[in-house]
Amino acid sequence: MKKTGIVFLLLILAFLLVWPFIGPEYQVYLTLSFFAYSVALLGFNLLFNYTGLLSFGHALFIGVGGYTAAFLTSRFHIPYMEVSILVTILLSGVVAILIGLICVRYIKIYFAMLTLAFGMLFHSFLMKTYHLTGGDEGMSVEQPYLLGMDFSSMDQMAFFSGPYYYYSLGVLILASIAMWRIVHSPFGLCLTSIRDNPDKAEYLGIGIRKYRLLAFIISGCFTGVGGVLLAPITGHMDPGMVFWTHSGDMVFMTLVGGFSNFFGPMLGTVIFITLRDVISSYIEYWRLIFGALLAAIVILSPGGVIEVLTNLFTLIRRKIMAGENAS
């Protein structure tokens, strides 16, 4: 990574560390969704950007994570967050293997549609198993213990802007480091080669299905963990979380932020969460504006907002340097 990039990241990290002290309670609470979705999108974008597969059913893994947290905390009374995360990784992995074995045989629209179908299959499964999952009413998610510590004596908002905030931030940092290593590993390079030209990759001895499957599994696990983080924030899981439009929201965040940049999707979550919050406080119709924004991004700047920003940044820097040279 370039020096300016590292400095920039450290600045953002420093800001996030002090944010609960300086930010308004509600905005700090919103930041929690940012952490959760960012983790989920790390997984989504491993597939979309690095492997070239667009999943329109990734909310399924949010569901796996969220319902795992719901079952463990409110049904089995196992409130440990770490247990939820581990069980989710395991379950997401198993689900991803089962679905992936079928899905990775296809690419492009077929892959998108198959994942959508599996997502919707899971959605109707949740709806119909009323006795188990509460059907469309969903299940509640109890406040989890973090690192074995019980915070139930704490005020809900204090929990969110204190322990849970830093816990989520920690998970995001760990997940980012793990994903950064994955995309910069030999495995990551092979994934990009498959995305760019599967035939050629195969002739270079890369077993494309094996790689796609592994990418799908890893992707599912990350998104699952994102789901676990998301669950306590609303304290509730319902089938709407796995509906295909929620998968669409994830696609939206990734695209708007910038799919071809490692940090693009994170910027996308900020934009999504903030915009939705701001717009919906004025008018009810945030999807209209989101749709227009998405259309504009797709047509005008497929690299997303982060590309626009980096281009702007280099332009300004070049101007400044030119100015210095002139004087």
């Binding site: 629209i109 989101f290 749709g291 227009a292």
Partner: peptide, 24 residues
């Protein structure tokens, strides 16, 4: 002339817009 993914996403954007236009 774009990647199929972007074509799919553009129609998804349409879906979002029309849904709200109807509500509006």
């Amino acid at each position: 002339d774009r990647d199929v993914h972007f074509q799919l996403l553009l129609t998804f954007a349409l879906l979002l817009m029309i849904e709200d236009i109807i509500k509006l």
